[in-house]
Every structure is written in structure tokens, then in C-alpha cells.
């Protein structure tokens, strides 16, 4: 078997391992955590940047 053939099989194998790892991990997370918690993020939440400051009112 040539080097390039081995490389092709290696590429397929590594791709499969990584894809399967992600799918399995995603299922495990779904089984361990409540859906409401996983989807509880809010845009701009816990933000330390400037967008929350209202100059008009002079307060956050």
C-alpha cells in the first residue's frame, strides 16, 4: 500500500473519530443538563462593555 493510500485512510479515520466524538459529547451533554439551562444565555448578558451605559440618563 502506498503512502498516499495510507494518508487517505488516515484522513477518513481521523475525520470519523472527531465527528463521532462531537455527536457523542452532544448527546451526553443533553442527557446531563436541563435544556432550559443550556438555552439560558441572553445577548449582552453579564457584559462589562459600554453598551449598557445610557448617557442620556447618566446611569447604567
Amino acid at each position: 500500500m502506498k503512502f498516499w493510500d495510507i494518508l487517505v485512510y488516515t484522513a477518513w479515520s481521523i475525520s470519523a473519530v472527531m465527528l463521532v466524538w462531537m455527536v457523542v459529547d452532544a448527546f451526553m451533554i443533553s442527557s446531563q443538563y436541563d435544556e432550559e439551562y443550556l438555552m439560558s444565555s441572553r445577548e449582552g448578558g453579564e457584559d462589562d462593555v459600554v453598551h449598557g451605559i445610557h448617557l442620556e440618563e447618566g446611569k447604567e
Binding site: 446531563q32 436541563d34 439551562y37 443550556l38 444565555s41
Partner: peptide, 13 residues
Amino acid sequence: EKITSSSSKPIAM
């Protein structure tokens, strides 16, 4: 039991 939002702060990136 599953970890819920009531037992933790909201999740964020």
C-alpha cells in the same frame, strides 16, 4: 438529576 437553570446562573459564552 439533570443540572437545571434554577441551580445555576444563566449560561454564557
